[in-house]
Each structure stands twice: as C-alpha cells, then as structure tokens.
C-alpha cells in the first residue's frame, strides 16, 4: 500500500466513521474536528483491521496518542509498517 493509498483510506475512515467534514491533511485533529483520545483508540482499531492487518502493541498505541494531524497518522502507519518489516 502506497502513502497515497494510506492517506485515502484514512480520509475515508475519518469522513465516514468520525463525521469529519472536508478534512485537511494538516488540520489539528483535536481543535478542528473534536477528535479526542477515545476517537484515537477507535481509529487505531480500524487501522489494525483495514490497513495493517495485524495488532498493534501497547507501546505502538501509546506513540499514536501524540498524533495531531492526518499527515502524522500517515507517517505513523508508514513507520509501523517499516519497523515491522525489518
């Protein structure tokens, strides 16, 4: 899956499941869309299922709690994929 594919998937999830309207890649998720830690945990579950295909460790999930933008999410997923493929 390319970076663009990941980005498109994330945008689709945020729009369909989290009621985001016109999300921008550098929007502050919390301030601009009311995205909170509970949303983050739900999103991680969806990322595991639909993008990664494996379960994240608790440490990996903890890292995700500091994410602020959609670009951060995409970078986070790429990092995880990269570190798991080593």
């Amino acid at each position: 899956m390319t970076k663009v594919d990941i980005q498109d998937k994330i945008l689709a999830i945020l729009t369909e499941d989290f009621e985001f309207e016109k999300p921008g890649l550098d929007d502050n998720l919390r301030d601009d869309h009311g995205f909170d830690s509970i949303d983050a945990i739900e999103l991680l579950g969806k990322i595991e299922l639909t993008i990664l295909g494996f379960s994240l460790t608790r440490e990996e999930k903890e890292k995700a709690m500091g994410i602020r933008t959609i670009n951060d999410i995409v970078a986070y997923i790429e990092d995880i994929k990269h570190s798991r493929s080593k």
């Binding site: 830690s37 509970i38 945990i41 608790r58 999930k61 903890e62 709690m65 500091g66």
Partner: peptide, 8 residues
C-alpha cells in the same frame, strides 16, 4: 495514555 489504552 497507557492507563486510557489499557482501560479502553
């Protein structure tokens, strides 16, 4: 964050 993740 760890506590929240564990609980959720």
């Amino acid at each position: 964050s760890r506590m929240m993740i564990e609980q959720m």
